[in-house]
């Protein structure tokens, strides 16, 4: 098992958002978590990545045989957990290349490897750039600063390609994308899909799943997974809306 979430409860500012989540993800699997706004989807991503505003009050998370909740934010990342941000953060004056290089070398240091020299890094970068059709000029700009919505999301997937995570959590990576950008981003994700890597897609809409076929679909509502199924569940949601599940649950 790559990731095993057992009965996770989490609060922010004293308010309980996650109310007992259970989820197991194996290598090679793609899971989609869907749910209406405010159901706790992004909270789950934040808790897994270790955002400090969230307090885990109950439950355990095991990631590659380690207690994930004991790890610092950066150690989770170095161990192979990657979060593609819903709102990627701007850091003025820090070029995208330098930022990614720092991240890649931190990971290599963690793995006991030598840092990549400029040339080797550039070579790898060139390869991965093609994946998300990202332009060299974008990479010399300050990270995320003045990027369009699509550029920001492509840059997230580009970083995923560079960092080669074991588990990628993609938080609303489809939001704010037009159809072309969505196709490019989804294409990139599909190419990064392999049997050693697990992907957790967090999305509000079914449309991303037209491009990326999930193995499992879960519906998150009011801090709990209320329904799990196959791709068909997503289609059903698309057709009937969330109401059919939320009403069922509220009863």
């Amino acid at each position: 098992m790559m990731l095993s979430i057992k009965n996770i409860h989490a609060n922010i500012d004293g308010k309980e958002i996650l109310k007992g989540i259970n989820l197991d993800i194996k290598a090679g699997e793609v899971h989609a978590i869907m749910g209406p706004n405010g159901s706790g989807k992004s909270t789950l991503a934040s808790v897994l990545a270790g955002r400090e505003e969230y307090e885990v009050t109950e439950g355990t998370v095991t990631f590659l045989d380690q207690n994930l909740l004991d790890l610092s934010i950066e150690d989770r990342a170095r161990a192979g957990l990657f979060l593609a941000f819903q709102y990627p953060v701007e850091i003025p004056g820090v070029s995208t290349t330098n930022f990614i290089k720092a991240a890649v070398n931190e990971k290599r240091k963690y793995q006991g490897k030598e840092p990549l020299d400029a040339l080797a890094f550039l070579k790898i970068m060139k390869e991965k750039m093609a994946l998300v059709e990202i332009d060299q000029s974008l990479l010399s700009r300050s990270i995320n600063e003045g990027f369009s919505g699509g550029e920001k999301k492509r840059n997230e997937i580009f970083q995923m390609a560079m960092l080669e995570p074991k588990l990628a959590i993609l938080d609303e990576t489809d939001s704010g994308l037009d159809i072309d950008a969505l196709r490019i981003v989804a294409n990139g994700i599909n190419q990064l899909r392999n049997q050693n890597r697990a992907i957790l897609l967090i999305t509000h809409y079914q449309r991303l799943l037209d491009y990326i076929q999930p193995d499992f679909v879960h519906v998150l509502y009011n801090g709990r997974i209320v329904k799990s199924g196959s791709k068909a569940l997503a289609l059903e949601l698309e057709e009937k809306g969330y109401d059919f599940i939320t009403e069922e649950t509220d009863l």
């Binding site: 990545a49 950066e74 953060v89 004056g93 820090v94 930022f99 720092a102 960092l163």
Partner: peptide
């Protein structure tokens, strides 16, 4: 330094101290 900037760096595996140095250098870059 924004909490969100620090978190973003740390999620990419860059520790807090290195992240601060990175952000400060970016701040001074011009």
């Amino acid at each position: 330094i924004g909490e969100d900037q620090l978190f973003y760096c740390r999620q990419r595996g860059i520790d807090a101290e290195a992240a601060v140095a990175l952000i400060v250098n970016g701040f001074a870059k011009e």
